[in-house]
Amino acid sequence: MDILLIILTVILIVAAVMTIRKKDLVAAVISSSVVSLIASIYFYLLQAPDVALTEAAIGVGLSTIIFMITIRRTRRMEE
């Protein structure tokens, strides 16, 4: 159980750093989706399944769609 928590934390931190540092905005949006996924598992582990449900529906699904439509209307690369 502890090794699972360590691995989840490492993936969460790496994905959060990639969200900030990436110049390709599509990769940054995918990294943000991974952060939301792992955070949802953490909410689930902390005995809050309703928060995990909302985080999964909004963070993984809805925000990715809105960000991709926005990138489509503007530029993909950040200078």
Partner: peptide, 12 residues
Amino acid sequence: LGFVGVLTVARY
């Protein structure tokens, strides 16, 4: 709902 974001990125 998990595949919707992946579908959107693939469509883009």
